[in-house]
Design a protein around this nucleic acid. Structure first.
Length: 259
DNA sequence: AGTACCACCTGACGGC
DNA sequence: TGCCGTCAGGTGGTAC
């Protein structure tokens, strides 16, 4: 599930439950997810989690007298905090044990994401070509970015090097709310429409965070809860249709979103 | 540069 | 019930 809003919810969980706690030890269940050596990771032992940050779909943990740890969740990752008398969650790939009490698991069903050390969120973003977080962009910056980009609008929204955080699901939501067809070429989108898109992008992402990225708590007119072929469009009498873009399933309302 | 497609890896779901 | 194909919210690499 993890796009920007999901990762923001994960970050808040980590923040609420683990800031200031000293890491006693850690356990790796899925080796492939871990991108740093044991030797390096062992240095987190005995140190506190000082703060958290998020950029796009990446979550960063600042650990005292250490660099930072960066968490990426792939398609099926999440985090879960649990107490000493609770069981470790299913598909836990990595877990921290805290000195005081409690545990934090990084869960990954498909073993896609990544956990590794990095110098800082900014350095990591620089090295990995991760654009500004979608919620940190001013309208002017957003317009500037779109000017640099060619091709379809959905591709632009999902281009993590252009702006970071938006994935397949939320791009569909933003585009239907802005009444833009995902394949609409940027050259055909005027400034008024681009500004509307910026507004919708912010609205959707903020609303999703507000409801803890829980689709069932989204407002009634959202696409996400009815993102299935043949479901009723939240805006008109039409039906939701599935199309493919670069091999990925993409849901639209053909009458609300025209090419 | 943009787009399509494959690979990574495994689970969930629908059809037979 | 069980097997099989298909698909899945991400990213990276390749090829056109």
């Amino acid at each position: 599930m993890p796009e920007l809003p999901d990762v923001e919810v994960f970050r808040k969980t980590i923040d609420d439950k683990t800031i200031g706690k000293s890491i006693n030890d850690y356990t790796i269940h899925v080796k492939d997810l871990v991108g740093s050596s044991r030797q390096k990771l062992n240095k987190i032992r005995g140190h506190k989690i000082n703060s958290t940050q998020r950029r796009g779909k990446y979550c960063f943990l600042e650990i005292e007298d250490f660099d930072w740890l960066v968490l990426h969740f792939g398609m099926t990752g999440s985090v879960s905090y649990y107490e000493d008398d609770e069981e470790e969650p299913e598909y836990s790939a990595f877990s921290f044990q805290f000195k005081d009490k409690g545990h934090l698991s990084v869960i990954s069903k498909r073993k896609l994401g990544k956990i590794e050390a990095c110098k800082s969120p900014d350095a990591f973003a620089e090295e990995n070509d991760i654009g500004t977080d979608a919620l940190e962009l001013s309208q002017d910056e957003f317009l500037e970015l779109l000017d640099k980009k060619r091709g379809g609008i959905k591709g632009a929204l999902m281009d993590q090097s252009l702006l970071s955080g938006i994935g397949n699901i939320y791009s569909d939501e933003i585009l239907i709310q802005a009444r833009l067809h995902p394949k609409m070429n940027l050259s055909k989108i005027d400034e008024k429409k681009r500004k509307e898109l910026y507004t919708k992008m912010n609205e959707v992402l903020k609303k999703a965070i507000e409801v803890q990225a829980d689709p069932s708590k989204l407002p009634k007119n959202y696409l996400i809860p009815v993102r299935n072929e043949g479901d009723s469009c939240p805006y008109c009498e039409g039906k939701v249709k599935k199309i493919k873009i670069s091999g990925r399933g993409c849901y639209i309302c053909p009458s609300c979103q025209k090419k």
